[in-house]
Amino acid sequence: MRDAPRRLGAALTAAALALTACGSEDTGPDTDAGVAEGDLTGRLTVFAAASLTDVFEELAEEFEARDPGAEVVFNFAGSGELATQINSGAPADVFAAADTSTMDQVVEGEGLAGEWVAEHGEGGAIFATNTMEIAVPPGNPAGIEDLDDLAADGVSVAFCAEEVPCGTATLTVLEAAGLDVTPVTYEENVRAVLTKVELGEVDAGLVYVTDVDAAGTAVTGISFPEADEVVNDYPIAVPAGAPRPALAAAWIDLVLSETGASVLTGAGFGTP
């Protein structure tokens, strides 16, 4: 019974591939020309990590402007949640994760679209990188200056839970620095860490640079040298059950293009 949606997805994929085979063949990975051909229409469903919200919405405007027949709809959530949804048969055309391990879940579960993998390789294409920063409330009440300060007595810290990508990154950062810090809470996602920092409930939190940028003046970011050792890669790919793989490929091309890179950089992301 649970295979039914997957089989349906596979059938849809096959049909979509047959219909759009010509279009996707002409699409070069780094040329914007391929995207602008105008024969790509329909609704594109993008599953993306919540941290990509602003960037992807900006890119969607660009995408739809170039191709008035296309419409981009998003499902922003935690990467792990998205992976579970896709593996349960959710009709995602594109999956953009905040780390490679969640992409691996999809690779092992639902799998990636064969044609796309043939061009871009297993595990998806890395389109952005992110590094960590310490976020403190405005005015920095605990006087945090570097990573070591998080381990001091009386300093309350919020981390991401290790089950989510930013938590994995946090662990790696602390390991690299040789620090043992016990936070007061392991938050479900980066946003939740930021909320606790913004409200001053904790003295500091470890989040991504992009999150500090997005939070504006609500928090202050403090960078630290150890962050460079843990660069988080954002992979993007077309899942096997994608209803519109040609549109999906076009979207990924846009993300990987110069335009995509500049929007990502503007939001604080690094590019590979």
């Binding site: 089950e163 007061v184 809470t185 938050e187």
Partner: peptide, 18 residues
């Protein structure tokens, strides 16, 4: 918040495991 033993109740554990 979510800290095993002090504030991580079953629903939170379920969500994290998910």
């Amino acid at each position: 918040g979510n800290f095993p033993g002090t504030t991580q109740t079953m629903p939170l554990a379920v969500y994290m495991a998910l």
